[in-house]
């Protein structure tokens, strides 16, 4: 046995490497697993769906099989007006997020409440479900949980979508896929830097804000503003539309790429978008031969651009 003289060395290697793995993998895993989800974390995972990157439900990252976030102003079943409520509509077959299917992700309190009061155990993938986030006070603390409104209130996915106007629909799940696929996170972080950055870009995230989310896409190489709270800083859909089509329209010094290809072939009115004509007119505008830039087409309802804008506006 040629390794004989290295017996002690091999054992020492095992001990050293094993100890290192124990400290850097097992101990943090136990620590992080005990974190309970926050209300922000529930909103995030319900709006994003199961996977934000490659997954069996959407292998080519086109944004299919994702939930739709809606703002409900009336009860989808009775039609009575209600306080504006964020709801997450999972059509039949759309996979539920990991927090619903995995017992450890929500943490003890939210998990119990979601099962007893929220009836998430009755959520059925074959018929789909509508989820809302609720909070109750327990021992002086607000504990968030998921309510399966299909079981508790009889809100069916199709009926809910039928009640919601186009302006109150946000394709956030599909938008997250676009955010990941188009590599927005190579330049825009979703995690503010320490100290001063928190004053400029908003509050840092809390411990339980990410439970159930995959990938978190924090980003590391920041060449552009942090987007953790961008929807609170700038909620203008029109600005976002111009900025995604050609960032130089609203910020002449921006180095962001143009995302006009996410518009697809037709605009919101079904008219074909003539890109080459647009580029020619824009070049004239950029050269000072036109006073106004060409009109930016409104993205179609099912376009990828619309989904990405919905996602960014919902980062609050």
């Amino acid at each position: 046995m040629a390794f004989r003289e290295y017996k002690i060395g091999a054992r020492m290697f095992g001990i050293a490497f094993g100890t290192s793995m124990f400290i850097t993998l097992y101990m943090p895993a136990v620590d992080i697993a005990n974190v309970s989800v926050t209300a922000t974390g529930l909103h995030r995972q319900l709006s994003f769906g199961r996977m934000g990157g490659f997954g069996y439900e959407d292998p080519l990252l086109t944004g299919v099989n994702k939930p739709v976030s809606v703002v409900l102003k009336s009860d989808p079943k009775s039609g009575q007006p209600i306080e504006a409520t964020n709801a997450y509509v999972y059509d039949a077959g759309v996979p539920f997020p990991n927090g619903l299917t995995h017992p450890r992700i929500l943490g003890k309190g939210p998990s119990e409440l979601s099962n007893t009061k929220g009836k998430i155990g009755e959520a059925n993938n074959a018929t789909g479900a509508v989820f809302i986030v609720r909070e109750v006070e327990q021992n002086g603390e607000m504990v968030p949980y998921i309510e399966n409104a299909t079981a508790t209130r009889g809100w069916m996915p199709s009926a809910t979508l039928a009640k919601v106007s186009e302006a109150d629909r946000f394709h956030v799940g599909k938008g997250k896929i676009m955010f990941v696929r188009e590599g927005c996170w190579w330049c825009h972080t979703l995690l503010p830097e320490e100290t001063q950055d928190w004053q400029y870009f908003g509050a840092p995230p809390m411990l339980g804000d990410f439970n159930g989310e995959n990938p978190t896409a924090f980003g590391s190489d920041r060449k552009a503003p942090d987007l953790t709270h961008v929807g609170s800083r700038n909620s203008s859909r029109e600005w976002m539309t111009l900025h995604f089509f050609n960032p130089r329209l609203v910020q002449p010094h921006s180095i962001m790429p143009r995302y006009d290809y996410l518009w697809g072939d037709v605009d919101a009115n079904g008219r074909k978008i003539n890109f080459s004509e647009w580029y020619d007119s824009y070049d004239q505008y950029a050269a000072g031969k036109r006073i106004y830039p060409p009109e930016v087409p409104e993205p179609a309802k099912d376009s990828e651009a619309r989904a990405l804008i919905d996602f960014v506006l919902n980062l609050k």
């Binding site: 992080i32 995972q45 990991n98 411990l207 990410f210 439970n211 989310e213 995959n214 978190t216």
Partner: peptide, 29 residues
């Protein structure tokens, strides 16, 4: 040997759909 362990453990968020801070930590691990 170590790089195989690194690939196996570091990609476990994709194999087992681990989420949240565990995913973020393992990405950088």
């Amino acid at each position: 040997f170590m790089v195989m362990i690194v690939f196996l453990v570091g990609n476990s968020p994709e194999f087992f759909s681990l989420t949240g801070l565990t995913e973020a930590y393992l990405t950088w691990w």
